[in-house]
């Protein structure tokens, strides 16, 4: 049960980082923290209820996180080549 609480705390810390960080890379790091907290809660539920399905789901989460990091860091590098910045505050040309 303590690991469920730990995953809740980690998720909140990641949400705080995603809200307060100003560069895209560090926001992305915080989102990874949140993903990992969700995986920790799944593993904890798997242990508590004695089912292995949640561990398979965690494997999928890790694979999808890898794909997400590949695309996300590609986006950040592409934006940096055009704008010479990774600050999310300066990328607001879409605002009407």
């Amino acid at each position: 049960m303590i690991w469920l609480i730990a995953s809740a705390l980690l998720f909140s810390i990641g949400a705080y980082g995603a809200l307060t960080r100003r560069t895209a890379i560090l926001m992305f790091l915080s989102i990874e923290l949140m993903l990992n907290a969700a995986a920790l809660s799944l593993i904890s539920f798997s242990r508590l209820s004695g089912s292995l399905d949640a561990q398979v789901v965690v494997l999928f989460i890790i694979a999808i996180a890898a794909a997400e990091v590949a695309v996300g860091l590609g986006l950040i590098v592409a934006i940096f080549r055009r704008r010479e910045t990774t600050s999310v505050d300066e990328l607001r040309q879409l605002r009407g």
Binding site: A8, L9, F11, S12, Y16, L19, S41, R47, L48
Partner: peptide, 29 residues
């Protein structure tokens, strides 16, 4: 503001997760 929001989120999550009742005799993994 983000700290307050994160603390509130943590409180809600801890409340929700600690209400989980695990089955009594869970099989070994």
């Amino acid at each position: 503001v983000a700290g307050l929001g994160a603390a509130g989120l943590a409180a809600v999550l801890v409340y929700a997760l600690t209400r989980f009742q695990p089955p009594a005799n869970a099989p070994a993994l």
